[in-house]
Each structure stands twice: as structure tokens, then as C-alpha cells.
Design a binder for these strands. Structure first.
Lengths: 194, 194
DNA sequence: TGATACATGTAACGTGTTACATGATTCA
DNA sequence: TGAATCATGTAACACGTTACATGTATCA
């Protein structure tokens, strides 16, 4: 139940059409939440049906026509409620860690290349965030509202930093491993006794 | 498409029944992948249908009866294929960061309590992981297969460390903020001009 | 025999993903 | 007028979540 609140937040910061939202989700919003245009249109329909947002008046709703949305008071209230409500952290799920664990069982063949690729992606993401920081949060003293936004960006930066370090370490470990990690181990059942 | 591979990995490490798997996913597997028993049973059925796993022979399939599964050669091959295949990182989605960003818009009322709760949860998780590390990976020189498992656990530990630090910092910032973050800002439309 | 824990499931729904469809606008 | 781009959408499916259902074993 977070996508609608991500959209409400984005619309409060600036009323937008579906496609404009999609672009903002790809850019600045992307470092804490991502969404495709299909999700966004689906959700905009729901939110309008629930009376939390509305299309700006004086816009005809034809199919290929731009439609700008803005948040209604009920929408702002719902967002405030949700922000303050207690929520449990999402259970952990990380594909890369799972793959490493799987490699401990079936061997590390072919892993290294993709780890390098991920390292490169995270490095690029990191420098991108650092540029945003330089541009949007110049040294010392941002306005009160900006301190929270800066805090969120810092989390993004620190997480990317963590992943680049961890991946670097992982590659070192991989290289130091005996040639094929665990031996092929053909102990899989062809006719294993009970 | 990761849950089946998480199950294959777990079953290769040790053949298990559905409920045993559920327990292992709650414990040691939980720091890189989580799953409920409903997901696990659903997926075990699929995997068996695809010929990647089978129930250990000499077990009657009654409803309340234990059923142990083991991985077939085709299953091991599929896991090895998946482990080596290139995969893009999952798009970022973090509820806590989203809430902070929302708070920058609708105000920070009620946030602090839940941040403290999260901090406490992450601290507890961290010490739990550290105990696993002390117990399962005694100082220096683990066996080759264990180095990868240790690496995965280190990621879990470092991530929890990051979150406790970040939350501590976030609480400091919150406290330093003017009483209600951004002013109530009743600029929501009642009749806003174009 | 009745309660409790163990063990395996079904059903319904919300969200995320991928592929495709349709109308409007622009410009060569 | 035809291709490319902008903009809004539909459809189908995979996965995760929550609530509930059913059968077995144990033991008071």
C-alpha cells in the first residue's frame, strides 16, 4: 500500500500528468521509489475514484490528451495519516545475496562477470546521486523542508556506497577461491538410498 | 523469478519438508530471502510438476503427513544456470525513505515514535546476525564454501549497521527541525485558479 | 474426547511486470 | 500522408500477503 502514497507525495510537490509523473519517478523520486507508467495510470484512476485527487478542471478527457492531476484535501489527510502510522519493515529480499549463497552450493562459474557489471552500475548510480547532492543541496544549511529531502538522498548515497564496497570485496573473495568453488559434487540423487 | 531458486538452494543444502523450509526461511535464510509457508507450498508444487524436485520415496502423500523434498539433477542444473545468468538489479523501493519524503510535504507529526521503533528492530536484528557470525564463522579461515556464506552474512550485518546509523541520524535531524516541519500549508485546492 | 500443536494446503486480493493497443501531435 | 513521438490506457500473468480450511499426532 505504498504506491498511492508515493503518487500523492509527488502530486503535492507538483501537480502533474501521468507521463510527467512517470518521468519524475524515473529521476528524482527513483532513489526511494520506482514505478512504471502502467502502474501509475492504474493508480491515478483508483485515487480519482476514491476522491483523493482530481483532474485539473477545463481539460477534456480524450484518450491521447494530457490530463493533469492535483491532490484534494482528503488526499492530503490520507497521506498525513499514512506517514504517521506505525509500519513494520518489509522482509529482506535481495537477489544478489541469494545468488552468492546459491553459488556456494552449485559453484561460482560465470558469476564474476555479472558482479563486475553490478559494481559498475552501482558506481554510476552513486556518482549520479552525488551530482544531485552538489546541485540541489549546496554546502551547509538547507531550508527546514529540504533537510528531510537531503536526509533521504543521503540514504541513497550511503546505500550505493555500501554496495560498491561490498561488491569490490566480493570480487576479491571470488578471485581467492579455489578454481570452481565447491567441487561439482554429483551427489544429486540418481538412486540414493533412504 | 527468485523464490524457486531460493528453495532449490535451501533443498540442496538439506532436503526438507514444507514446514522445515518455512522455519529455515525464518532463520538463517531470512537475512537474504524471506517467504511464507503459503508461498513455499505453492512453489514446491510447481517445482515438482516441472521435474526439478521430487518427494523422497516411501512417504504417503496424506494431507497432514510430512513430505520431504529433494532436488533432482535438472533442478541443480537450473540453479547453476540461473546463478550464472546476467540479471539487472531490482528497482529501489523503500517505504521508510518514502515516508520521510512525504513528511517533508505533510509534516512530521507522529513520525518520531515509529522511527525509534524501527531503530530498535534494526539494532536487535544486527546483534542477532553478529551472534550467528560468532557461532558459525569463528575467527579466520573458513572453508572455501563457507567464505561465500560468510560474505552474504557480512552484507546483512553491514546493511543493518547502515540502517541503525542512518535512523539515529534521522532522529537527530527530526529533533532539530522547527516544531512541525513544513507549515500546515493549506494551499490545497478549494478553489485554486489555473 | 477434547485441546493443542504440527503439517499441508485453498482462496482472494493487491501490487509489480511485460507486452500490446489506441488516439493525438509534429514534422519531414 | 506517413513516420515518429507523445500520451493514455488494457490485458495477462507472476509474485507476495492475508485469511481461512483441513487433516494428523500428542497428551492431559
Amino acid at each position: 500500500m505504498s504506491l498511492p502514497h508515493a503518487i500523492l507525495t509527488a502530486l503535492l510537490e507538483k501537480p502533474s500528468s501521468g507521463l510527467e509523473l512517470t518521468r519524475r519517478f524515473d529521476k528524482s523520486i527513483g532513489y526511494f521509489w520506482s514505478a512504471t507508467h502502467q502502474q501509475i495510470y492504474r493508480e491515478l484512476g483508483k485515487l480519482e475514484g476514491e476522491g483523493l485527487i482530481r483532474t485539473l478542471p477545463a481539460e477534456q478527457p480524450a484518450r491521447g490528451q494530457k490530463k493533469r492531476y492535483e491532490v484534494l484535501p482528503a488526499g492530503r489527510a490520507e497521506l498525513a495519516r499514512w506517514t504517521a502510522a506505525a509500519q513494520d519493515p518489509k522482509p529482506q529480499r535481495d537477489v544478489l545475496l541469494l545468488r552468492l549463497r546459491a553459488a556456494a552450493v552449485v559453484g561460482t562459474a560465470g558469476l564474476e562477470a555479472d558482479l563486475r557489471r553490478h559494481l559498475e552500475l552501482h558506481r554510476r548510480q552513486l556518482t549520479e546521486y552525488q551530482e544531485i547532492e552538489r546541485r540541489d543541496f549546496p554546502p551547509d544549511r538547507d531550508a527546514p523542508q529540504d533537510r528531510l529531502r537531503h536526509l533521504v538522498l543521503r540514504a541513497g548515497i550511503d546505500l550505493e556506497t555500501f554496495w560498491t564496497r561490498w561488491l569490490t570485496h566480493a570480487l576479491t573473495e571470488l578471485a581467492a577461491l579455489p578454481d570452481e568453488g565447491p567441487p561439482p559434487d554429483p551427489r544429486t540423487p540418481d538412486n540414493t538410498p533412504a
